[in-house]
Design a protein around this nucleic acid. Structure first.
Length: 551
DNA sequence: AAAGCATGCCACC
DNA sequence: TGGTGGCCCTGCTT
């Protein structure tokens, strides 16, 4: 009996998508051992990779955690494994019934249900939202005059010299557009008619005083219900930039939802939900030429959006002045920044050579002092303590360090505290939003970790470890867990699980909610962020679409 | 329409 | 250490 049952159970569970790659693997293993549909129940290409990934050292070490206890597994298989020996005692009716079941199984296997369900899901997958940037705008093609060869023009061919061999190791330099010149860039949207002015409502909205941060900490139950109330619909998805989103943020205003996203080719899109300017409320700009790794609105001057790019530029979009001003600039390789003061005038900026710079926006030029980390080329995230602004946390290669900006040296600065336990590279590290008593990290070893930084001792203790598939691969922005600024102890993170979802966890590791929607959420949302004051959550995907869950 | 292509990551050897 | 191979989304082109 259980042959068909476990098959149907498997399919049902898969359809319900309560399955992690781990327990899927376990179920498949069980089914194969029982001689059920051994071939057909192999991984579809989609499911195959998590298994392969588990070959990595860190995962292999912890892999056993995910297996069910053996007796539980055996209990589930009991009737199957003993069935053959019992055949002799069965009535003719029962034998016939078993034979029917066997034939049904063979049939089900032969039609390749597993693959079929995957294909069905592909077929029924909703079309991406057509809101926001239109295709015409997304791919602006230059209209070139018709070309005629010299031969057709009946002219003598010129002797052309080959361009010099490109030098340097950066192959991207050949293909990517040149970096924007320094100095203020006019804030001209690239997706609306040339010469048209910024909509006046944008300035109005951006100028809106950020409501006094009344951080009313809810109890967990209250928080859960507020989060469960947040929904998505077709009006809350739009293509805001052309390509893969690297960073995104909410504007702090509350009368409308205004969002910004930065993409792989240095574009920055602004989107007001329900807005009537641009493409469905979307305005697109190009202040940079390579990925916009980090962006944030100034809390003291909300008409300003700071954006940082791998191309080495850090700019300040000022809606009032309608320009992108220079803030800081190096040749190449800016990675991350955070505000160091409440007035947002000083910043800590990190590059991928492992240096951090303290930048004061009030003094012109690159006035900064540098800190050289022990592990060059591994700095991925900096984040400033919410209360004690002299402290900032740095995700280095396999260790997270907390530094005191007052005690920085040119090299070999002493960390105030270190967070140990990561076995692979760390993609992000953030102080908890209200007290800074916790640091939340996301690591390529497939773990999210929470540390206790309340005492700031030389070694901050690890409190919680949460297993989470971080293998986004090359084409997706890496996942990072980020706190809800309204709730000291809860955070949000994207997920690779199908159906696609965004998860909210408590610092204890307890899952609070999974945001899902068969119609409007069908892709991995790598970039996630909560609104600073409203019940709203954003998620950005690899095709430039922003998704909003709100109440 | 199905298939192919492009694609700024990481860990491992 | 640099080179290599696997990651496996999405949108657009052929």
């Amino acid at each position: 009996m259980s042959a068909l049952m476990s098959l149907s159970k498997l399919l049902t569970r898969d359809t319900l998508q309560e399955m992690t790659p781990e327990n899927l693997e376990a179920t498949v293993r069980r089914s194969s051992r029982n001689g059920l549909a051994p071939k057909r129940l192999q991984y579809s290409p989609e499911e195959e990779t998590p298994k392969k990934k588990r070959k990595t050292k860190a995962v292999a070490e912890n892999g056993s955690q995910n297996k069910k206890p053996k007796d539980e597994e055996d209990a589930e298989n009991n009737d199957v494994e003993h069935a053959p020996e019992e055949y002799g005692r069965l009535s003719a009716y029962e034998l016939e019934r078993l034979e029917n079941i066997r034939q049904n199984q063979a049939f089900l296997s032969s039609i390749n249900l597993f693959q079929a369900t995957e294909e069905f899901k592909q077929l029924t997958r909703p079309k991406p939202s057509q809101r926001g940037l239109t295709r015409a705008h997304a791919a602006v093609k230059e209209v070139l005059p018709p070309r005629k060869s010299l031969r057709l023009q009946k002219k003598e061919a010129e002797i052309l010299e080959l361009p010099p061999e490109p030098r340097g190791t950066l192959i991207y330099e050949q293909s990517s557009p040149a970096k924007k010149p320094s100095g203020p860039l006019p804030m001209d949207p690239v997706n609306v008619e040339e010469g048209s002015k910024l909509p006046p409502q944008l300035l109005e909205l951006c100028s809106e005083d950020a409501k006094e941060d009344k951080k009313i900490q809810l109890d967990l139950k209250g928080y859960r219900s507020s989060v469960k109330n947040m929904k998505i619909n077709e009006d809350k998805v739009a293509k805001v930039v052309k390509d893969r989103i690297f960073s995104a943020t909410f504007h702090p205003c509350t009368s409308s939802l205004l969002l910004a996203a930065g993409d792989k080719w240095g574009k920055v899109g602004l989107w007001k939900l329900g807005g009537d300017w641009g493409d469905d409320g979307v305005l697109l700009f190009q202040p940079h030429t390579r990925p916009v790794g980090c962006m944030a609105f100034s809390r003291s001057h909300p008409t300003q959006l700071l954006s940082l790019s791998y191309d080495g530029s850090l700019r300040c979009m000022d809606v009032e002045k309608a320009v992108f001003d220079d803030v800081y600039d190096i040749e190449d390789g800016l990675k991350t920044f955070d505000f160091m003061s409440h007035d947002c005038s000083t910043l800590v900026v990190g590059n991928w050579y492992g240096e951090v710079a303290i930048v004061d926006r009030r003094t012109p030029g690159n006035s900064h002092e540098s800190l050289h980390t022990l592990d060059p080329k591994t700095l991925r995230c900096v984040n400033v303590h919410p209360l004690q602004k002299q402290y900032f946390v740095v995700a280095e290669s396999k260790v997270v360090s907390i530094y005191d900006s007052r005690n920085l040296k040119k090299t070999k600065s002493q960390a105030v505290s270190q967070l140990h336990g990561h076995s692979l590279s760390i993609s992000s590290a953030y102080f908890s939003p209200c007290t800074g008593n916790r640091v939340l990290t996301s690591c390529m070893d497939n773990n999210i970790r929470i540390y206790d930084t309340s005492t700031m001792t030389t070694k901050s203790p690890l409190l919680t470890t949460i297993r989470h598939d971080m293998q986004t691969g090359r084409w997706l922005t890496k996942l990072s867990a980020v706190w809800d600024p309204k709730q000291e102890d809860c955070f949000v993170v994207g997920s690779m699980m199908k159906p696609r979802r965004v998860q909210v966890f408590h610092e204890s590791g307890q899952l609070q909610h999974s945001f899902m929607d068969s119609e409007n959420l069908s892709t991995v949302l790598s970039v996630t962020a909560f609104h600073p004051t409203r019940n709203a959550l954003l998620g950005g995907n690899a095709s430039g679409r922003l998704h909003v869950f709100s109440d």
